[in-house]
């Protein structure tokens, strides 16, 4: 009985962890490429859920068409977002301006969504219906397994692209350093835009994955905070760390419900703060030092 319960909690925790990991990776990519913490990432995630809801439920698109159209929209969002929030501010004398601007963008996105879809949450049917019955009343919805599957695929893809393949590393280098960009012959604007596009698409897909589990509403944006927590626990600016940290956050959160429902979030963020006290750079982070 207990083992069954723990198994269920583990699966739920891991699948939520996957969602947080997708969010965290989206942030890490931007942090590494342009050094900006994007507070609107959660709203891009929420927007992903709404776009997929609109395409499947309101426009009745079959899943494959829907995915392609949605990806195109995410690409557009990524590009627009970069030009609205990052590009005009990249040389600003005030480093805080970009953070505040992403904060403004998050408010704007939330309000736009409210104007289009109203503030009443909407329901997205599961992508894969059905329940896996292991034994007795130990049941796991397929949706969770689907999230774990797709999540692992996305994480592997991003990991390969940015940490192993030359192209990805070159892209990140080029976005940071115009000299490297010159060597590669790619304008910084292209590499930066690509990073934003990949980041926006990632979280958009994340929004699609999570939408059937929760009501689709503007409060989906708050998932970002868990992704942040995962990223900081894992290590600042490290893809592998962000993924492991996020999975940890998902599992901790899931098992915390055994003891307390009201302090679920507080438990996660307390773990975060404890990690910060013990290891300010997270588990996989290395100290980033400024060149003098």
């Amino acid at each position: 009985m207990n083992i069954g319960l723990y198994l269920q909690l583990l699966v739920i925790g891991l699948s939520m962890g996957m969602i947080y990991a997708i969010l965290a990776m989206g942030i890490v990519l931007l942090v590494r490429a342009v050094g900006v913490l994007n507070f609107a990432q959660g709203e891009l995630f929420m927007l992903g859920a709404y776009v997929c809801y609109a395409l499947t439920v309101q426009l009745h698109m079959p899943i494959y068409v829907m995915l392609i159209v949605a990806l195109l929209i995410f690409v557009l969002f990524g590009t627009l977002f970069m030009f609205a929030v990052y590009w005009p501010l990249r040389n600003s004398k005030w480093p805080a301006t970009i953070i505040i601007s992403t904060l403004g963008a998050s408010v704007v996105l939330k309000e736009v969504v409210k104007l289009i879809w109203g503030s009443v949450p909407v329901v997205q049917p599961p992508i894969i219906k059905g329940v896996l019955v292991l034994w007795g009343n130990v049941r796991i919805e397929y949706q969770y397994l689907f999230i774990i599957g797709i999540g692992s695929l996305l994480i592997t893809a991003v990991f390969l692209l940015f940490d192993k393949l030359f192209l990805g590393r070159a892209m990140q280098a080029a976005a940071q350093d115009s000299y490297a960009a010159q060597l590669l012959g790619i304008p910084t604007i292209v590499t930066t835009a690509l990073t934003y596009i990949i980041s926006a698409s990632l979280v958009g897909v994340g929004g699609w994955l999570v939408s059937p589990l929760f009501l689709v509403s503007t409060s989906l944006g708050s998932f970002l905070l868990k992704g942040f927590a995962g990223m900081v626990i894992g290590g600042l600016g490290d893809v592998k760390g962000a993924v492991i940290g996020s999975l940890l956050v998902g599992v901790i959160e899931s098992f915390a419900t055994l003891f307390t429902a009201t302090y679920k979030d507080a438990v996660v963020f307390s773990v975060l703060i404890i990690v910060l006290i013990v290891r300010p750079t997270g588990f996989f982070g290395q100290k980033i030092s400024e060149k003098v």
Partner: peptide, 28 residues
């Protein structure tokens, strides 16, 4: 003293986490 061991944006985020924890505590 704890949060300022983090720099820049990571400090900013940790203050967000603080607000969430505190709100949980205030409510409960």
């Amino acid at each position: 003293a704890i949060l300022l061991r983090l720099s820049g944006t990571f400090f900013t985020f940790s203050t967000v986490a603080l607000v969430l924890i505190a709100h949980d505590l205030f409510t409960n």
